[in-house]
Every structure is written in C-alpha cells, then in structure tokens.
C-alpha cells in the first residue's frame, strides 16, 4: 500500500510540474499543451472518436503477436536443445536480427507480409522474438546442475523434459522475457501502425497517435500517450504481478 501511495504522489507531482511549465509559457502550446486540453482531448476522443475501438484493436494485435512469439520461441528452444548445430544457427540469427528495428526492414516486411495486419504482426514478432529467445536461452542455460541430474536420473528427455522440468525451472527467466516482450510488442505495434495505417476498421492506437501528430493535435497526441502509459501500469502492476504471485513468488523462485 505504501508503494502505491508513493507512486500516486509522484504522479501528482509530475502533473503539477507539467502544468507549471505550461503556465510559464516557455514553450508553444503546440509542443506543450495544458493538462486541461489533454484531458479534454482524451474525453472527446473516447466519446466521439474511435479511441476505445482503436485501443481494443491494438491490444488484440499485441496479444496475438506476443503469443505467436512465445509459441515460436518455445518451439525453437525445444529444437535448439537437441541439436547444437541448430542452436548455433539460431544464436547467429539472433545476433544479426536483434539489433535491427523492424521498421528498418520495411521493404522486406512488405515483400513477405504485405501491407495489412500481417505486416504489423510480422514487425511485432520480429521485435519480441529475439529478446524473448535471449531471455529463455539464458534461463535454460543456467538451470541448476543438480536439478538436471535429477531429471537425468528419472530418465526424462525431449519434450517431457522441457515441459516438466526445464520450463518450470527457468520460469523466472521465461516470465521476464515475456514482460520485456510485452513492452517491445507495444513499441513495435505503434511504429508499425504509423506506417501501415488502419489495417482494419479505424486502425489502432499507433494510427491514432500518428494522425494526431500529422494534424498537429498535440493535446490529442499526449492523450494517446496517457492511455498507453495507463495500460502499461495496469498490465505490469496488476496482471504480471498476479502471475508472479501465483508462480515465482509462491515457489520462492524470485531472482
């Protein structure tokens, strides 16, 4: 509870500082709008605009992209454990692909995935998969030796080994990989939507932000950012915390 109170006070302080800067008039209101205009824009776009739809649409894409990456990541991890050649290949692929922002690969993306939802998903998966694999491999590589020997002792190999022993054992790393993936997915989604626009219906939050920017509705832009920040806090503070309580905390496996 104390943590919560501290956070609330910090947020309040930020709001005050923001409004203070606005009042000094140092910056043009087009760069630094008042809290009032931001809140007004937020309300207007929720009620009159398609902000809710857009938020749900983006959320759906992020979850799809994240799930897809996790499944791919687990599959790759399974194969990599049985074949060191494959593992070396994947390590190479990771070090080549990881530093590249998805948006830099635009021509390739368009070639392989088109210009619709598929392309956005592609960019999301590209931004999530590599750091997720790094976390996952890191955790799988660092499993306690004794634990591995117990699994050898009971003659558990292959798929069963991964699911019964290795994944639960590396769960803290797996979970932090997912958390990182979650924020990477959002960043990727927003930059992808800025290019690919409304890939369905009225598009998503990235498209919303982009339109605000090009039509110079800065208050609306900040309103969109507020939405994203709130989502981030809720998911991390509530959803991931809930998962942690039931897993790594219950098992005494926090790092």
């Amino acid at each position: 509870m104390k943590q919560l109170r501290i956070k609330a006070i910090l947020i309040l302080a930020c709001c005050l500082i923001w409004q203070g800067v606005y009042w000094t008039g140092m910056y043009s209101p087009l760069i630094f709008p008042s809290l009032g205009t931001i809140v007004h824009a937020l309300g207007r776009d929720f009620v009159e605009g398609a902000l809710i739809e857009q938020f749900i649409y983006s959320m759906r894409l992020v979850i799809e992209g994240l799930l897809l990456s996790i499944v791919l990541g687990l599959g790759i991890a399974l194969i990599a454990r049985s074949s060191s050649v494959f593992r070396s290949g994947i390590d190479l692929l990771i070090s080549l692909a990881h530093p590249l922002p998805g948006v830099a690969l635009l021509p390739l993306v368009i070639l392989w995935a088109g210009i619709g939802e598929g392309a956005v998903l592609f960019i999301i998966v590209h931004s999530v998969l590599w750091p997720f694999l790094v976390s996952l491999f890191g955790a799988l590589d660092r499993l306690p030796q004794t634990q591995q020997e117990v699994a050898d002792n009971y003659e558990i190999f292959g798929w069963r080994r991964l699911i019964w022993v290795d994944l639960p054992g590396s769960f803290p790393g797996f979970l932090s990989g997912v958390k990182i993936g979650w924020s990477r997915a959002w960043r990727a989604l927003i930059s992808a939507e800025m290019i690919f626009g409304a890939t369905s219906g009225s598009g998503g939050i990235g498209w919303y932000l982009f339109q605000k920017r090009v039509f110079m509705d800065t208050a609306g832009l900040f309103a969109g950012l507020v939405v994203i920040m709130v989502i981030g806090i809720l998911i991390e503070g509530i959803f991931f915390r809930w998962i942690e309580k039931r897993t790594v905390i219950r098992w005494g496996m926090e790092r």
């Binding site: 306690p144 030796q145 004794t146 634990q147 020997e149 117990v150 050898d152 002792n153 009971y154 003659e155 022993v165 639960p168 054992g169 769960f171 897993t247 098992w251 005494g252 496996m253």
Partner: peptide
C-alpha cells in the same frame, strides 16, 4: 547412464523442484 531404478539423493537442496 542414470536410471530411474537407481535414484540418487544429492547433497544439494536444488534436487527438489521448487515449483512443486
């Protein structure tokens, strides 16, 4: 190789699975 009919009790506490 290791066999399940010859189980080993290790000294390390890591031999138990923390998630179970």
């Amino acid at each position: 190789r290791p066999q399940k009919k010859c189980p080993m009790v290790f000294q390390s506490y890591e031999q138990l699975f923390p998630w179970l």
